[in-house]
Nucleic acid binder design. Structure first.
Lengths: 199, 199
DNA sequence: CGGAGTGTCGAA
DNA sequence: TTCGACACTCCG
């Protein structure tokens, strides 16, 4: 039985969202009894769906040949076995410029709806869409966008960027948005009904 | 061309005889520029004649089936390709109790001359003789015995024991000793001469 | 060379 | 004296 009052791990209201505080008591030496405090992010999402993924635009995981635990990790990314492979900051930037194309050239250009505001250092909406699509596919939590202020996040993204959320400003969904979406679904169902009837 | 000012290897007066100090600068990573210091013995004798040998009383090398580079080595035993397989401290102790025997029992008991003083943790003169015989057979340098003080050596044999020398106190050879040995040789030659004459 | 853990020292 | 901050050691 492992009685351990020496390790205390806790979320902490004073910390940015997703960060945790751990207190470790020194066990030996002159400074035994001293408490060292470590801060690190602890996230828990589906570990089978997080990077590294192949560096293509696909949001679906594709296995890579060698998949090891990251070796060159920093202190705050370590701690406890359940720790996750860290995401690279603004990793989506590596996907920039990738587009689907065929013999006739680029296909499938996209654009963002007005209410989605890009937040990262990205030059094209396509990258923002990739970030959003990845979050929708990977995350087990609701997608809200970044809830911190744009200034705070961009000044110190290592701390204030929430890696679980896509690089868009927080999106507010209004009752009007819900109503419009319901109408869209309704129309689609009607068209499907007609199509099945004439088949 | 390999310009390396990062490796500095030197004997050091503060170190026991035969030890060397090497400074290696870390070239990459977070700790680039940091200096690691390694201490190791650098000796060079005939590598084909050093342990491990079969664990018999024979002082002659007999090949063993598997002969790998030692894996569980300490840092100080590593370094540079010419480094030698480390001797186990007081390895001669493993030979203790081995004696030649025939159907009539043990043969060939031995004893040490007075001027040879055992130095190790050995219980029988036979082991000391094995140590001495191995040194005489293996070493490319003169056999002097241990030149450090008995107390220093036994308190920290890992550092102060000279593995190139047998576990006997330093032996002083006097002019008298040489004269007696010359007489012995002389007598032996005379007897050989007589034996050949009467054959 | 990295990482966990301890030592050390100045400021509060 | 306690509390950071970070230098350092030891080991894999």
């Amino acid at each position: 039985m492992n009685i351990s009052i020496e390790k205390k791990k806790s979320d902490c209201d004073a910390l940015p969202k997703g960060w945790q505080r751990e207190e470790v008591v020194r066990k030996t030496g002159l400074s035994a009894g001293k408490v060292d405090v470590y801060y690190y992010r602890g996230f828990r999402s589906d570990a089978s769906l997080v990077p590294p993924i192949r560096q293509t635009a696909s949001i679906f995981k594709q296995p890579v040949t060698v998949y090891k635990t990251q070796e060159s990790k920093v202190k705050t990314d370590l701690k406890q076995g359940t720790q996750e492979k860290p995401k690279q900051l603004f990793w989506e930037k590596r996907l920039e410029g990738l587009t689907a194309c065929d013999a006739n050239g680029v296909i499938g250009t996209t654009s963002l709806p007005k209410y989605i505001k890009p937040l990262g250092p990205y030059t094209s909406d396509a990258t923002t869409i990739q970030s959003l699509a990845t979050a929708l596919h990977v995350s087990s939590q609701p997608i809200t966008g970044q809830t911190g202020s744009k200034q705070t996040i961009m000044e110190n993204p290592g701390v204030f960027l929430n890696p679980e959320q896509p690089l868009i400003a927080a999106v507010t969904i209004t009752k009007d948005d819900l109503r419009r979406q319901e109408e869209r679904v309704e129309r689609a169902r009607l068209r499907l009904q007609e199509a099945l009837a004439t088949a």
